[in-house]
Amino acid sequence: MSKRGRRVGMAIAAAAILGTFAYLVYGGIGENLVYFLTPEELMARGDRAYDVPVRLGGQVVPGSVVWNAQAVDLRFAITDGAKTVPVHSSGAPPQMFRDGIGVVVEGRYHRAGVFESTSVMVKHSNEYRAPKHGEKPAEMYRSLTTGSEE
C-alpha cells in the first residue's frame, strides 16, 4: 500500500474508533444499560413486572427488617422514596446489611406483592467515615439509590 493510502486508512480507522467512543459516551447505550430498577420503575411496568428475573435497587426502609437466624429467613422493604416493595430472602444478609443502607436484590416479583430474592447485595457509598456521636448515616444512602443518572 502507498504511504498516502496507509495514511487515509489510518485516518478512517481513527475516525471509526473515536466515533464508537463518542457513541458509547453520548449515545443511547446509557438508556439500555440498566443494572437495576428502582421500585417506582418496577411498579410502572404493570403486568410485566411479575415473575421475570430482575434486579431491584433502593434503600432498606428503617424498621422494616425482620431477621430470623434459626430459620435463615429475612424480610425487609426497599424504597426509592416514591414506592416501597416488600422483599423476602432465604439467605443470610451481608455483613453491612442494616436499616437505611442501600441494597440491590436479585430475584422475581411475585403476584402476591412480595419480591422473592435470591441474592441480597449491599450498595455502600464512597464516603468512608469514622463514626461520630449521634450520626445518622441513613440520610446519605437515599441519594445513592434514587438513580445515578444526571
Binding site: 447485595m121 455502600h124 464512597n126 443518572e149
Partner: peptide, 19 residues
C-alpha cells in the same frame, strides 16, 4: 461508569470523599 450508569460499585473514592 459509576457516574454514567447505575452500578453496585460505589462512585470513585478519592482523598476528598474519604474521612
Amino acid at each position: 461508569s459509576v457516574r454514567w450508569w447505575r452500578t453496585l460499585h460505589q462512585p470513585q473514592s478519592s482523598p476528598s470523599t474519604v474521612d
